[in-house]
């Protein structure tokens, strides 16, 4: 059976193609302002790259905030269910998933059979999400990769008191003008995001093994800060950024 999962996030649109149990293909493109165009072009390019026709796809599941725009989907499933299915596929046995995407962060608790036992999402606020990191990286004139990496060489984490994206940006700018080292500021930003994510998770519900998915999983600094706060190791699957799409393709096999 050949299935496709499309995950339309606020920042990027992801696709995953699964043939039986084998992950054939994944791709990520920016979502842009036209959600419809983003997934249609991504699907067309994917089929072309794989030399497949649409009729050769058995099922397609859409997820992410733009899921309802995928009119050809056999089913639309929320990103929480898809992220859970994705991690069960790539890291079976995982009990806790932290997913930080462009505009929201989620914590998913899995039971021993890989079913979603409970979940939490951040409030409607960019604090602690990929968008927040983007704004902070811009304020420090860094790209996101360097932003994550630099914090690992910090000698201390500067306290960032505001978690509001707008106020935190001006706080960071004033820290720069006070001569604080960039890496220490970044370490402080990561710490405050990790603190916010951990308080959303509620420590009692966190069970090992813990995995991290979503675009922000590539940021090693955040991962390290989360590991320190949780006192647990966090694994990041290679498919972290496309995990929702992979999960959608996995669930497509079951409908």
């Amino acid at each position: 059976m050949r299935t496709i999962g499309i995950d339309i996030g606020s920042t990027t649109t992801k696709i995953a193609v699964l043939e039986n149990d084998q992950l054939l293909y994944t791709e990520i493109v920016p979502t842009g302002y036209n959600v419809d165009k983003a997934w249609r072009e991504l699907l067309a390019a994917t089929l072309e790259n794989l030399r497949l026709r649409e009729s050769e796809i058995d099922r397609l599941v859409a997820t992410g905030y733009g899921r309802n725009s995928v009119d050809i989907a056999d089913r639309r499933i929320t990103e929480i269910m898809c992220h859970a299915a994705g991690i069960v596929y790539s890291r079976p046995g995982t009990r806790s998933v932290i997913d930080i995407g462009g505009q929201d962060s989620k914590f998913i608790q899995l039971d021993a059979d890989g079913n979603v036992a409970d979940f939490k999402m951040n409030d409607k606020c960019a604090a602690g999400t990929g968008r927040f990191l983007e704004v902070m990286a811009r304020a420090l004139e860094l790209n996101l990769e360097d932003f994550g990496r630099l914090s690992l060489v910090a000698n201390r984490a500067v306290k960032i008191s505001s978690m509001c994206t707008v106020f935190a940006e001006s706080e960071v700018i004033s820290l720069i003008s006070r001569g604080e080292e960039r890496e220490n500021i970044i370490a402080g930003i990561h710490e405050s995001i990790a603190g916010r994510v951990v308080s959303m998770m509620g420590r009692s519900g966190v069970k090992a093994p813990v995995a991290m998915t979503g675009g922000v999983a590539r940021n090693q600094g955040i991962r390290k800060a989360l590991e320190e706060k949780l006192k647990l190791n966090i694994t990041v699957p290679e498919t972290a950024q496309v995990n929702g799409a992979v999960g959608a393709a996995v669930l497509a096999r079951k409908i």
Binding site: Y65, T78, E79, I80, M81, D104, V116, M121
Partner: peptide, 14 residues
């Protein structure tokens, strides 16, 4: 409210 909708849909799926 899309975020609320996602949470409620997930709840239903659970």
């Amino acid at each position: 409210d899309h975020q609320a909708l996602t949470r409620l849909e997930t709840f239903r799926q659970l």
